[in-house]
Structures are given as structure tokens and as C-alpha cells.
Simulated scan of single mutants.
Amino acid sequence: MQDRDGQERGAAQNPNADNPSQASSETSVTTDSPASETAAAFTGVLKPLGILDKGVAMFEAAVLTVGILAMAVNSVANVIGRFIFGQSLYFSEELNQFLVILVTFAGVGFAARHGRHIRMSAIYDELPDKLRKALMVAIALITGAIMFLLAWYSFEYVYSVYGTGRIAPVTQVPIFLTLVWLPLGFMITGIQYVLTALVNLTRPDVYLSVTVVDSYEDTETQL
């Protein structure tokens, strides 16, 4: 009698005991967090910003892919020429210097878009959601303003180099052409931070970037 009463009480407490699939389904629904949503960051009237973000992302990916592959091909070809044919590529070192500038400043915006910049989050992690969102908006706007300021200063520097007419000694490429990635990279990074602030102001979750939601887990959610 006691066993039967215990079974009846257990069935009352767990009405899905006879249907494990239904219980599992309900458990998965309750344990999913909002950070797992994969909806587009910009919709409605803000959809053009999503198109802008996608275009910038494609440009960054293309530039980084070409830059890194060019560095690899150039370095490997130089090693092969040196040890097999006994003759290094005379332009290899200079070309790699140009490519390092390209990859570095194009990668700044790429890292911002994926929320991969170093963050000091000891205080941020202890704040409630509303304060974390407000702080993230402030961080994004201030950082974006600094990026635009650096873009302006770097543009002035590139323009001054253009005025000198300097050219690379080996490849004979105008030096200012190798430095255009400085203002361009800062400009793209500034745009990414402004978009991060906008997506935090228009959506309920806390976003580290346009594509990364700050979650309660150890890892962020990539959209």
C-alpha cells in the first residue's frame, strides 16, 4: 500500500513521467537562454544598417584572406628561392612589411565585429542586465569616437606622407599607398562600435558586437 501511494504521489509531482520525450522537450525549452537566439541584429527601418554591416564584413574577410595568403605565398616562395635556387626574392621583405600593415589594421575592425578585443570585465560582469547594457552602450560609443579621431589623425599623417612623394626603395611603390589602411581600418572599427551601440539600444539582449551576444555562459553566442 505504501509503495502504491508513493508511486501515485510521484506521478502527481511529475505528470510527464509516462512520456519521457515530452518531458525532455519541455526541459530543453526551459533551459534555453535568450542568448541562443540567432535573429538578425537589424530589422525593420534599421535593415540598411544590417546591409552595411554585411558589406563591411565581406570586405574585411576578403582583405584579410588576400593579405594572409599573399604573406604566406611570399614567405614560402622566398624560402624556396633561397635554399633551392640560391637567390632570395629581392622584394620579399618589403612586400611583407606592406602586408603586415594591411592585415593589422584590417584585422582591428574584424576583431571588433566578432567581439574579440581584450576586455576588462571584472566590474561589468557583476552588474545587472540593465546596467551592463548601459555600460556597453557607453563603451561602444566612446570607443567608436576614439576610433574616428584616430582615423582623422591617421588620414592627416597619410596625406603628409603623400605630400613628401616618398616611394619604397625596392618596389618603387608610393609609401602613402601602403598606409591607407590606417585610416580605413580605424574608420571601419569605429563603424562597428557605433553599430554595437545601436544594436544594444534596439534589442533586449546585451551585445558585445553586432554579431556576438553576451551570455551567462563561459562563451559568447556567435550569431
Rank of each mutant, 00 (worst) to 15 (best):
G165R: 13
T178S: 11
A134W: 12
K133R: 06
Y193A: 04
A112S: 11
W152H: 13
L150K: 10
L131G: 13
I118D: 08
W152A: 10
I142W: 07
I139R: 09
D125K: 14
E126M: 15
L184N: 05
V194T: 08
G109R: 01
W152K: 11
G165F: 12
W152I: 14
R116S: 08
I146W: 10
F155I: 01
R119V: 12
V199H: 04
V108K: 02
T171W: 00
P183Q: 07
N200E: 08
R116A: 07
L131E: 15
Q172A: 14
S160K: 14
E126W: 11
Y162N: 14
I188V: 14
I123V: 15
T164N: 15
T178H: 02
I123N: 15
V180E: 09
P169L: 12
T104Q: 03
R116Q: 15
T104Y: 11
L127P: 10
A122Q: 04
E126R: 15
L131C: 08
E156D: 10
I142V: 13
T143G: 04
V108T: 12
T143A: 06
I142P: 03
K130M: 07
A197Q: 00
Y153Q: 11
F105Q: 07
F148S: 01
G163W: 14
Y159L: 12
R113N: 09
R132I: 00
I146G: 06
G185I: 05
V103R: 00
V173A: 11
S154C: 12
Y153F: 10
T202A: 09
A138N: 12
G165S: 15
I118S: 05
V108L: 15
W181M: 03
D129G: 08
L182I: 07
I191V: 09
G185D: 06
L195C: 02
M187W: 09
D129P: 06
I123A: 12
F110V: 01
G165T: 13
F176K: 02
A106P: 03
W181G: 00
V161K: 09
V103P: 00
A111K: 05
I191Y: 04
L149I: 11
L195S: 01
Y193L: 06
G144D: 10
G165Y: 13
I101Y: 14
I142T: 06
I188E: 10
L184R: 00
R116K: 14
G144V: 03
Y157K: 02
A138G: 10
G163A: 07
T196K: 02
M187Y: 11
S121T: 12
W181S: 00
P169N: 15
V161H: 11
Y162L: 14
A151N: 05
R203H: 04
R113Q: 12
D125V: 13
Y193C: 02
G107P: 02
L135D: 12
